[in-house]
Amino acid sequence: MSAGRGGVGWESRATARDVAALAGVSPQTVSRVAADAPNVRPETRARVRAAMAKLGYTPNTAARMLRSGRSNVIGVVVHHLARTGEAHIVDAVVTTAHEHGYATTLVDAPDGSLEHLDAALQRLASTAGVVVLGLETADVDRLQIPGRLPVVVADSRSLTHPAVGCDQRGGVQAAVEHLLDLGHGTVHLVGGPAHSLQAREREQAWRATLARRGRPTPDVRHGDWTPGSGYAIGQLLAADPEVTAVLAANDEMAAGVMHALHEAGRQIPRDVSVVGFDDVLADHLWPPLTTVHQDFAAIGSGLVRVLLHRLAPSGDSADADDMAGGDATHAEHHGGAPRAATDALTRLVPARLVVRASTGPAPSSPA
């Protein structure tokens, strides 16, 4: 065997011990660097990576998984990745997982049904744990989870599974009260699909806020989250001179509503005020859209941190509240069976209203 890289024979495959010897560290440190673990000093990480490059070292991920008995992959179940919000959460999940030394793999549950969710979990049974996004079923507590696979759900409801979600109700309440405080007699809702749990939660908060303020509740018109559906509903709203305030269940439908109002000659906000939900493109509309900001990055990061808290040996991780993010709060229990355990509490990331130029005082008389 001839001498080669750093004293390692050209015909042999470099090992973690070879890298450790060249870098002047322990083999355990090499393993931590190979897994992108965060608990390595930057100068040590750089020295180890330089030794890896010099020796042509490639970590044997499969062997490491067999030795530890643990996967370094987090599964992500998606339902409708084309939705802007879900894509933002996935991006945050992937980024946070990588920062903690985990890869990610995505599996689609096409219609969000319990059957397809169960099938997706079965496909991810060998992963370290699973993050479930885009739930559209009220039967989430009946999920068939393989073995002791840790699962965290992106949801704002009180569930028997750990969950992290946006404070949907608080965000809608702030939006409706903002419009009422501007003098509008009521607020018309462009809701999401009738089957959508998120759309239902936002509609319930809208109804509750109007009722609490003693205002009439107009008929809801349901869209499908797209600008086109918002535009079609906006044409109907624009034809009604009594409509002075509109809340759309997402920014994309709000954009369609604004398009229809412009075409009909209804000026925003002089004649009609418009509010959206999500804050993904709101500042690029004209006029810039007042909307409820969802912190998708905090939700995605919180999902991974809660999952890692469940994966860590007892006492080895931070408090679950900290793992979900510094601004997260526990959800109240809204009926049903009591939660099974402390770590099954739903953690809500606050939603905040961002006021821009699309809302203003109610007109003194109908347009």
Rank of each mutant, 00 (worst) to 15 (best):
A264F: 08
A264W: 09
G265E: 04
R266I: 05
R266C: 07
R266G: 05
Q267M: 05
Q267E: 14
I268L: 11
I268E: 14
I268H: 07
P269V: 11
P269C: 08
R270K: 09
R270H: 13
R270A: 15
R270W: 06
V272C: 09
V272A: 06
V272P: 07
V272K: 05
S273C: 08
S273Y: 09
S273I: 07
V274Y: 09
V274L: 10
V274C: 08
V274D: 03
V275L: 11
V275S: 09
F277W: 14
F277A: 11
D278F: 12
D278K: 10
D278M: 05
D279Y: 08
D279G: 04
V280K: 05
L281A: 12
A282I: 02
A282P: 04
D283L: 03
D283V: 04
H284E: 13
H284A: 12
L285H: 03
L285G: 03
L285F: 14
W286I: 01
P287N: 00
P287C: 00
P287E: 00
P287K: 00
P288N: 02
P288E: 04
P288S: 07
T291P: 05
T291K: 02
V292C: 03
V292P: 06
V292T: 14
V292E: 08
Q294C: 09
Q294N: 15
D295I: 02
A297E: 14
A297P: 09
I299S: 13
